[in-house]
Design a protein around this nucleic acid. Structure first.
Lengths: 211, 211
DNA sequence: AATATATTTGCACTGAGTGCAAAATTTAAT
DNA sequence: ATTAAATTTTGCACTCAGTGCAAATATATT
C-alpha cells in the first residue's frame, strides 16, 4: 500500500483500559516522526532557497526518504505548508463545538478564534508566512484553503445552531474567515508591535461596527 | 517572441481620427479569433469529458494550433476558464469608478455589482459553473481568483474614497467579494427560479442586516 | 519587392504527481 | 524464536503542465 493506514479499526481484543487513547506502537511513532521530519526539513529548505526553487527530490533526499515515500505522508508539495493551517483550524472547530451555547454565532466564533489565536507560536507563524509570501503558488493554495475552512466552519455552525437559518450561518462563516484573513494581513504589516490575537479581535470589532 | 505584443505603442503616424479606437489590423483580428476559438473549443471539451481528463494537447489539436502556441494566449490551463471571471470583474470595477460619488462604499459596490450581474448570460454561466464544479483543481483556482479580485476591488475603493480609512475599505472589499461568492452558491442551488442578480441583491441585504 | 517585426511552432527539458509491483520492515501467531 | 501476514518503503516508468530557445512563418512597413 502506498497510503498509510490510519489504523482505521483496532481489533476488539482485551484492551487494558478503554479510556487510554491507545498505546502508540513502533509503527505509529516512526510515522509521526517521519511526518514531522519532512515538514521541518522542507520548511528549512523553503526558507533558505524559496518554495519554488526547492524540488521534491531535494526535500526527500534531505529528509532521508525516497521521493515516492513523500507522497505517503503529504499528498502534494503545498500540503506540507497547508497541513498546518488545516490542523489548526480543526482544533479551533473542536473548541468551538464545546464552549458555545448561549452566545450568538458570530460572537461565539469571535471569542473562540481569538482565544485560539492567543496560542499561536509567532515564531512558526512568521516562518510559514514568509515562505508563503514568496511563492505565487502557495498564495493561491492558501486562498483555496480558506474556502475549505469556511465550508467546515459552516458545517460546524449548523450542528451547534440547528435552529438558525442556514443563509445566516453561511454569512457568519464568511465573515469569520474573512476576519481571519484580514487580521493576518494586518498582523503582517505590524508584526513587531502586535499579536495575532489582538489584530483578530480588532478586525472583528471593526466588522461588527462597520455595517 | 512567445508572448503576444499587446500593441504596447503605436507609431505617431497620420491617424485619420484620434477618437476612433484604432482600426483593427489583420493581426489583431486573427488573434482575437484564435483566443475565442481556444476558449470555445476547450469549454466544449471540458463539458464533454471533464476538465481534468482534457489535456492541453487535445485542446491545441482540436483548436488547430500547436501546443506551444496555446501558451501565447493563455498562461495556464485554468486561465481559459478563469480569464472570463477576471475580465468581467475588471469591467465591473470600471463601472464602479464612474458612477459612484455620494453613496457609501458598500452601497455603491452593491448597486454596481447587482447592475452588472443583470447582464450575465445565464447560459454561459451555467456551463462555466458546471465545468468548475467537476474539478477540484478549478475550484481551488477559482477561490484564489476571488482573493485577487478582492485586492483589485480594494485598490479601486481607495482611489474613489481616498478619505476613508483603509481598514474600513478592506472590510468592504471582503464583504463584497464574500457576497458574490455566497450569491453564486445560492444561485447554483436555485438556478431555475432565480437570477444571479436577484441572489446577489438578497445576499447583500442579508449581510447588511446581519450584524 | 525587400526588410523589419511579430507570431507560430518544434524540440528538449524540468518538475509534480500516479500506478504498480518488488523489496524491506513491522506486527501477529504458532 | 520462527514463521506467516500485513503494512510501509522504494524504484521504475509513465502522464501531463509549463518553460526556454531558436528556427520557420506570417504580417506590417517602406
Amino acid at each position: 500500500m502506498q497510503e498509510i493506514s490510519k489504523k482505521a479499526q483496532k481489533k476488539a481484543s482485551g484492551q487494558s483500559h478503554p479510556d487510554k487513547p491507545q498505546k502508540e506502537g513502533l509503527r505509529e511513532r516512526k510515522q509521526r516522526e517521519t511526518r514531522q521530519l519532512i515538514a521541518q526539513t522542507a520548511l528549512n529548505l523553503f526558507l533558505q532557497q524559496g518554495y519554488d526553487n526547492t524540488t521534491l527530490d531535494t526535500i526527500a533526499e534531505a529528509a532521508g526518504i525516497s521521493r515516492r515515500t513523500f507522497f505517503a505522508y503529504y499528498k502534494s508539495k503545498d500540503d506540507i505548508i497547508l497541513a498546518w493551517q488545516t490542523t489548526s483550524w480543526q482544533e479551533m472547530l473542536d473548541e468551538l463545538r464545546q464552549v458555545s451555547a448561549l452566545l450568538t454565532p458570530l460572537n461565539a466564533v469571535r471569542q473562540i478564534m481569538v482565544a485560539h489565536a492567543t496560542r499561536y507560536q509567532s515564531q512558526n507563524m512568521k516562518a510559514l508566512d514568509q515562505v508563503m509570501l514568496a511563492s505565487e503558488t502557495l498564495i493561491s493554495r492558501k486562498q483555496a484553503a480558506y474556502a475549505i475552512q469556511e465550508a467546515a466552519l459552516f458545517e460546524t455552525l449548523c450542528e451547534i445552531w440547528p435552529e438558525q437559518a442556514q443563509s445566516s450561518l453561511r454569512i457568519v462563516a464568511m465573515l469569520s474567515v474573512g476576519a481571519m484573513r484580514l487580521a493576518l494581513e494586518a498582523w503582517r504589516r505590524d508584526m513587531d508591535t502586535q499579536t495575532v490575537a489582538a489584530c483578530l479581535d480588532e478586525t472583528f470589532a471593526q466588522i461588527q461596527s462597520e455595517i
